[in-house]
């Protein structure tokens, strides 16, 4: 029995170890490589060059170089894209959560059959590939002069995000006892005051988890931002894609590498910060649905 257990332990440990390596090495490698020159990162002669940075030392005199970062952030004005991403992401998360908590709460408390149908409709909407929706937007947006603005993109992302947000928050609110807001209403609150005084203080675990998924959707989106924004107000992801088109010829692939690393940092910070909440938020509500 014990022997069998220890084998199982070793097996499960090595399985995790393997996954941890698979999950982290690409990032570590790209981080490391972003401080090298291109001929090391893509080494024609010897793959070990990339690790020891042979060419980097020859070309720049040091082990590491920040040329890629300078090129991307200053020369290619990546900071503009970063700023735009910041605006878009922040607005999308705030607006989605505001609409989503109100709607999810109403759905969890309604008790009428149409609430159920709204949820089913949301599920179907969730299934629509984003780019098929974009093909519905483009022409009307061109005609109405809405195309190319950050605000249009924000609203579109909020809308696309609503089905998932509604589902997550609906199942989260369903786990908060009804007695809570009902006693508040008997105590003298309107439905909205009950929501504000009694539900808002206890809803954060679910909201944080949902917010994190909204954040990922807005921050990571490519299909919508690439097609709805002009070159001038691109966000980071389409900007990186456009680097690839131009950069490869000019030998500036390292700009893209640096930009990729820069765009990944906030994601890492976020998950490091909220990792505990993701699990507890999912445990509290979403997982039961």
């Amino acid at each position: 029995m014990n022997k069998k257990n220890s084998w199982l332990n070793i097996l499960s440990l090595s399985f995790i170890l393997l996954w941890v390596i698979l999950a982290s090495v690409p990032f570590l490698w790209t981080l490391w490589g972003s401080f090298k020159v291109e001929s090391d990162f893509f080494s024609k002669q010897d793959w070990r060059n990339a690790i020891f940075g042979v060419r980097t030392i020859i070309e720049t005199g040091g082990m590491f170089t920040t040329n890629g970062y300078e090129g991307a952030w200053i020369k290619e004005e990546f900071w503009r894209a970063a700023l735009n991403t910041g605006i878009v992401t922040l607005s999308v998360v705030t607006i989605s959560l505001t609409l989503g908590t109100l709607g999810g709460y109403a759905l969890a408390r309604s008790g009428f059959r149409y609430a159920f149908w709204i949820l089913i409709a949301a599920l179907i909407f969730r299934a629509m590939p984003h780019i098929t929706l974009v093909s519905g937007y483009l022409l009307p947006f061109f005609e109405l002069g809405l195309w190319g603005h950050l605000s249009t993109t924000i609203i579109v992302l909020v809308a696309i995000n609503q089905p998932f947000t509604l589902w997550m928050l609906h199942s989260f609110f369903s786990t908060i006892p009804k007695d809570l807001d009902e006693s508040a209403m008997v105590d003298g609150c309107t439905r909205f005051e009950a929501f504000r005084h009694v539900i808002i203080p206890v809803m954060w675990p679910g909201v944080i988890t949902t917010g994190l998924f909204s954040f990922l959707l807005a921050y990571n989106d490519f299909a919508i931002t690439a097609l709805l924004l002009t070159e001038a107000n691109q966000t980071m992801v389409p900007k990186i894609a456009s680097f690839l088109g131009s950069a490869q010829e000019q030998g500036n692939v390292m700009f893209a590498v640096a930009a990729v690393v820069s765009a990944t940092v906030p994601l890492f910070m976020l998950v490091m910060f909220f990792q505990r909440q993701i699990v507890s938020g999912l445990t509290a509500g979403a997982v039961k649905g």
Binding site: A23, N220, V237, V260
Partner: peptide, 17 residues
């Protein structure tokens, strides 16, 4: 935290890496 990294990464960036 480490196990989650591939999911949170921007799909375009992840595939580029």
């Amino acid at each position: 935290f480490v196990c989650l990294l591939p999911m949170i990464i921007t799909p375009l960036i992840g595939s580029l890496v």
